[in-house]
């Protein structure tokens, strides 16, 4: 089992497997995912479509609906350093007390995250009511105004009575964030929170998340496909490929010294607006079908350094230094580092 290295983890995930049982076959969405999130940090899961980053984030609070199933693994949640909760062992009722309360989600599309029939204030108050922080919706409205102020929505006294359609995309996402903050969560899971928004609006939402993290002492798990957001937002990052974590490192280290062939290619495939690039590196082939994932290392069919062992054995996760681990046969000690 992969060794985890966190001083004061808020979440620990050990060897997690989630499968989806579809008509076409069993989709092995994630297999053997292990990581921990340090209290107070921003941790990123980055990867392309279908790499399992969203599934992983949902599995943290058992938010996997049929035909999906958590096959095996452990998720430990530490509300305080000395108290450990085994999330996957909890009943749905017990998990509900944590989800939306201590661990909250911000999803991609603020348009569908909000109910069009209720005012923003009602929806914020409702989350508080559900978790017993208030006894009547009315009590929650002043809190909602405060939360809207905290998320920098102008004129919060008026906006608290607004319906979602009366707000722009950026304001809606701020309202969603306000809802996520309503119960003073310890961990906020933001799943592609700005993918549906314009560039200038995205910048403002990210600025807001940074500010909230500092002021509220939040821990953030950011799910994204955007390497730019990783570079600007995250303390540590895990790169996922086809249902596995292939590399994990502190952000600056990952960009300076990427080790896994996939990470190396991926970083060179992203066009950078601040730099003139004559040729973009492209990764041959496409992401594998997870009903029939390739044996051994899942990246081997696209890997320029693939060896015989890569086709047969799943690579172990190797810590190359205190904080940097990689799952690749190139680093098992025998082979030397290419290029």
């Amino acid at each position: 089992m992969t060794e985890l290295r966190c001083n004061d983890p808020i979440i620990e995930v050990h060897d997690l497997y989630v499968y989806f049982y579809t008509y076409a076959g069993v989709v092995r969405a994630i297999e053997g995912v292990s990581f921990c999130i340090e209290r107070g940090e921003t941790y990123c899961l980055v990867g392309e479509t279908g790499c399992g980053k969203s599934v992983t984030s949902r599995a943290l609070t058992k938010l996997i609906l049929p035909p999906g199933r958590i096959e095996k693994g452990k998720v430990y949640y530490y509300p305080e350093p000395s108290r450990r909760i085994d999330i996957l062992a909890l009943s749905e009722e017990e998990v509900k007390k944590i989800r939306g309360n201590e661990i909250t989600y911000i999803f991609q599309d603020p348009g569908t995250a909000l109910d069009p029939l209720y005012t923003i204030g009602y929806q914020i108050a409702e989350t508080m009511l559900v978790h017993g922080r208030i006894r009547r919706i009315k009590e929650g409205i002043p809190h909602a105004v405060e939360l809207l102020r905290k998320t920098l929505i102008p004129d919060p006294e008026r906006r608290v009575k607004a319906y979602p359609h009366e707000l722009s995309g950026g304001m809606k996402q701020r309202a969603v964030i306000a809802t996520a903050l309503a119960n003073n969560p310890k961990l906020v899971i933001a799943d592609e929170p700005t993918t549906a928004l314009d560039a200038t609006v995205q910048a403002q939402i990210m600025e807001l998340l940074r500010k909230l993290k500092k002021e509220e002492g939040l821990t953030i798990l950011l799910i994204t496909h955007n390497m730019g957001l990783v570079a600007e937002m995250c303390d540590r990052v895990a790169v996922m490929y086809a249902g596995t974590i292939v590399e994990e490192a502190p952000t600056e280290e990952l960009f300076k010294n990427p080790l896994h062939p996939y990470t190396r290619l991926l970083l060179r495939a992203v066009p950078n607006p601040l730099r003139r690039m004559d040729k973009l590196e492209s990764i041959p082939g496409t992401v594998p079908n997870l009903i029939y994932p390739p044996p051994g290392c899942r990246f081997h069919p696209r890997c320029p350094h693939a060896m015989d062992i890569c086709r047969e054995e799943r690579p172990p996760e190797i810590w190359v230094n205190e904080s940097h681990r990689v799952a690749c046969h190139l680093y098992t000690g025998k082979a030397s580092l290419p290029g």
């Binding site: 910048a203 600007e232 952000t251 950078n272 730099r275």
Partner: peptide, 18 residues
């Protein structure tokens, strides 16, 4: 200028100089 400043830069070194 604002548009360019709002793009997250996939390079922590360059991002600091933005």
């Amino acid at each position: 200028q604002m548009l360019l400043a709002s793009i997250p830069i996939p390079d922590p070194e360059l991002a600091k100089r933005k």
